[in-house]
Design a protein around this nucleic acid. Structure first.
Lengths: 143, 143
DNA sequence: ATTGAAATTGATAAGCTATCTCAAAAAAGA
DNA sequence: TCTTTTTTGAGATAGCTTATCAATTTCAAT
């Protein structure tokens, strides 16, 4: 039924270790979560309203936080909301954002990522995720 | 009176351009803000309560957001609160943030900054500012 | 210095996001 | 199935930030 067998196992293992139970809601939310790169609780609430209109918002929050504890998700505060990042999703990308027209260009740079690792380990940190945004003017807006 | 002449000029120029007015409160808040590397509105509210007990919290928020628009500050959301970073005084710095205990380590890395410039120019952008946050576990929280 | 239009302030209400409460429902082991 | 423990859903609550608005302040033009 679910395509996310590996992650489902990670969840079940975490549940087992902490005397928590495997529920229909947790399965449903994990399935939906793993299809996204990142999502907010509110977004997921509306998305899942079709499948289960009675699924409560509090349950979404509780479950997404559970995923963080299980190492499947990573909470990141963006604007006024909390984004829950899908850890298993590879292909992280950073953003170039034009302050003139709002244009967003995505990019990836291995050299930068390597230097980030260096900085982190020099400070005793193990990086889970990162966020890099460059703000400036695109060629069109500079004139 | 004020030691932050340069930044005060930046603020005044921004105010002039946008038909805004130079007030006692804005001067007071800028002076206090520039003494910090980063601060929350609430912290500043309590800090300034001694100098001006009638200074409202809403004014602090409004003014710190004004500083962001003027390019003197940068808002950063951490936990449930917003940190306002002073980017005009000590120069920009990036952050290593522990997702376990919330510890924040500031760092600067010229090599990363140079690579950022490269990425930007390759895409026709001129960088005005940037935000780099590395999330992970500090040595203490990893165990 | 005075005036008057426009912006700002302070106090508080309102808005939003996230968490807490608790009775009812569901899960898991015997 | 029975029993114990955990989870859920709905609404209440908490914490941070913004909106509202009458009174005040700024500032350019008298």
């Amino acid at each position: 039924m679910s395509k996310h067998v590996k992650e489902m196992e990670v969840l079940k293992e975490h549940l087992g270790k902490h005397q928590l139970k495997f529920t229909r809601q947790r399965e449903l939310i994990l399935d939906a979560f793993l299809k996204q790169e990142h999502i907010t609780a509110e977004e997921m609430y509306h998305q899942l309203a079709r499948k289960d209109p009675h699924l409560g918002l509090a349950t979404i929050y509780r479950t997404l936080n559970l995923f963080c504890e299980a190492g499947l998700a990573q909470a990141r505060h963006f604007g006024t909301q909390t984004q829950y990042d899908n850890i298993s999703h590879k292909g992280h990308h950073d953003h170039l954002i034009c302050t003139g027209c709002g244009k967003i260009v995505e990019f990836e740079n291995c050299d930068i990522e390597r230097l980030q690792e260096e900085v982190a380990s020099r400070n005793g940190f193990t990086i889970q995720t990162h966020r890099l945004e460059l703000y400036g003017l695109c060629s069109r807006c500079r004139h």
